[in-house]
Amino acid sequence: MLSKLEQTRAVYAGKHHAIDAFLDARQALLVEYIQLAGFTPQRGKQRSLPCCESIQHFCNNLVDYISASHFEIYDHVMGAYESAKGEQLALAETIYPKLRACTDVVLRFNDKYGNAGEDDLLTLDDDLNRLGPVLETRFCLEDQLVKALHIVERLSDKTTKQN
């Protein structure tokens, strides 16, 4: 997921302040997810469950990321799409229901672990393993929207220059 993020950043970095901030937030979230899920090896140490505060912090960042995507990025994207025709608008109409489905999974994870106690952590690994692919799917969908936004804005710039 981090390598895909770097590819997206290489293509779109510096083109939109909001997208840059969004990609920075995604990277921070991914790093935290990787640490929480225990994907970073610790020499000679057996993996132990993270503390409740770490999980709650991750849940807060996860909800902040989802909220920012809905209220900052998607509003901007939809504004551009309203003036678009054809493929880009159809893409948005196809992607948004899938994003909502991902959001539902994320919110269920947050509901379960946002105020988790020690006893709630017994199923954390399984839930993190289910959350990872959902996040990956969401990031791919968001990247499609960013790409389409870039195309729409380029077309809009060309139209403005021609008039």
Rank of each mutant, 00 (worst) to 15 (best):
Gly132Lys: 03
Leu135Thr: 08
Lys147Phe: 01
Tyr81Trp: 02
Cys102Lys: 00
Pro41Met: 03
Asp120Asn: 09
Ala10Trp: 01
Leu99His: 06
Ala84Gly: 11
Ser54Pro: 00
Arg130Ser: 11
Tyr65Gly: 06
Asp24Asn: 14
His150Cys: 14
Leu155His: 11
Arg130Cys: 06
Ser48Ala: 12
Gly14Tyr: 13
His17Gly: 01
Leu122Pro: 02
Phe139Cys: 01
Arg43Asp: 12
Val77Arg: 04
Tyr96Met: 03
Asp119Thr: 13
Ala116Arg: 03
Thr123His: 13
Arg43Leu: 10
His17Ser: 02
Asn60His: 04
Ala68Arg: 11
Tyr74Gly: 01
Asp157Val: 04
Arg130Lys: 12
Leu155Asn: 14
Leu62Gly: 05
Asp120Pro: 02
Asp157Ala: 15
Ala90Tyr: 05
Ser67Phe: 01
His70Phe: 04
Leu128Tyr: 03
Met78His: 10
Ile19Val: 15
Glu142Tyr: 06
Leu155Arg: 15
Arg108Met: 00
Gly86Thr: 01
Asp143Thr: 15
Leu91Phe: 09
Tyr12Gln: 03
Leu131His: 09
His70Asn: 12
Arg9Val: 06
Gln162Trp: 08
Leu62Thr: 08
Val11Cys: 00
Gly44Asn: 10
Ala25Thr: 05
Glu87Val: 12
Gln88Ser: 08
Glu153Gln: 15
His150Asn: 15
Glu93His: 13
Gln144Tyr: 08
Glu118Leu: 07
Arg43Pro: 07
Pro97Lys: 04
Thr123Ala: 11
Phe22Glu: 01
Tyr74Asp: 09
Asn163Glu: 12
Asp119Ala: 14
Leu2Gly: 05
Leu62Tyr: 02
Thr160Arg: 15
Ala148Gly: 15
His76Ser: 11
Arg47Lys: 14
